[in-house]
């Protein structure tokens, strides 16, 4: 191809790409970012500790594990399904890993088993959803209760607290508790790594492209003969693995885990994904959106704690903001007329 043609093509291509970027980011995320900036200004004005390095680092650390789960959930939502069982998977992964390890299984094997059980739960969810054809909402709702029950059963309703003399304890502590220079906790590194991997998968691979197609119009995906079942199997497995990883990281950071760990995660995970612009009906969702959505949620919790409004008021406020954010999004997208956001 002559150089001139190539340049012309490239020019047009980047123009087209810019168009898409404009569609997604400006329309959907600019409002969210504006809300974040506004919230930060308000919190800083009230409490000067808010805008300090220590507080912000702590804020990002505290959001890292639920955001890792939210990334997996973003993939599930893009494929047009739901996974409500991620909280329970988080709990059982930590418990399985801890129990095996404390009962003499080598550290690495126990760790693999913890992650493996997350993948296994994901595969079972996917199988029931795609082969038995039970809607994923019901499948994973049932799985949530089932897995929680199993966690209580295997742990005998007891929390576990691995003693420091166990082989591999140093690595265990480091997994979620290590601190890098500039007081950056390792959890932020995990967050960044998972974000990068999922973002690559969703936005830069054929897999992500087809996944958005499958979620966007399942009938058309069938007509186009896309591998719907196989892709959904992968997606649920990744979501399970993300939840398991998050559970193990928090287990390591806290140093113990309880049978009910993860029970409160469903709200922040879904709120982050939905505030971030993913569509519950499938086909839309970005990793950056989920990340910003999670940051916004964390910011509110953190700021409200600093203000000392109390846990109950916090719950009420965060609930209102979640509904408000999506309502605002609906309003701006319908108001925007023909310029709907597109995935690619």
């Amino acid at each position: 191809m002559p150089a001139k043609d190539a340049r012309r093509l490239l020019g047009k291509r980047s123009a087209a790409r810019l168009n898409v970027l404009r569609g997604i980011f400006l329309r959907r995320l600019s409002g969210l970012i504006a809300a974040i900036v506004l919230t930060m200004i308000v919190f800083t004005a009230i409490n000067s500790f808010f805008l300090t390095y220590v507080n912000l680092i702590g804020l990002v650390r505290s959001m890292s594990t639920f955001t890792i789960i939210a990334f997996g959930e973003t993939l599930v939502l893009v494929s047009g399904e739901l996974d409500l069982s991620v909280g329970a998977t988080y709990g059982i992964a930590a418990m399985t890993f801890g129990l095996l390890w404390m009962h003499g299984t080598p550290f690495v094997l126990a760790l693999a088993a913890g992650l493996g059980i997350g993948v296994l739960i994901g595969l079972i969810n996917a199988w029931i959803t795609t082969v038995v054809r039970v809607p994923s909402f019901i499948t994973t709702l049932g799985m949530l209760s089932l897995v929680q029950g199993v966690t209580f059963l295997i742990s005998n309703s007891q929390s576990i607290n691995p003693p420091s003399k166990l082989p591999g304890f140093g690595v265990f502590e480091a997994l979620g508790g290590l601190e890098f220079p500039f007081r950056i906790p390792i959890q932020i590194a995990w967050l960044a790594a998972v974000a990068a991997i999922i973002a690559f998968v969703l936005h830069r691979t054929l897999f992500g492209f087809r996944l958005a197609a499958i979620g966007g119009n399942p009938q058309a995906a069938r007509v186009a003969a896309l591998p719907i079942r196989r892709y959904k199997l992968w997606v649920f497995a990744i979501a399970g693995a993300c939840a398991a990883l998050a559970g193990i990281l928090d287990f390591s950071f806290i140093g113990s885990t309880t049978p009910s760990a993860g029970a409160n995660l469903t709200f922040p995970v879904f709120a982050a994904v939905i505030i971030g612009g993913a569509s519950l009906s499938g086909g839309r969702g970005t990793v950056l959106g989920t990340l910003i959505g999670a940051f916004f949620l964390s910011l509110l919790s953190n700021g409200l704690s600093l203000l000392g409004v109390g846990a109950f008021a916090q719950l009420i406020f965060v609930g209102l903001v979640t509904i408000g954010a999506v309502a605002l999004d609906r309003w701006t997208t319908t108001w925007g007329g023909e310029t709907q956001s597109i995935q690619l």
Partner: peptide
């Protein structure tokens, strides 16, 4: 049933 509405 033939097109993906979320796509360009």
């Amino acid at each position: 049933t033939g097109l993906f509405p979320n796509f360009s």
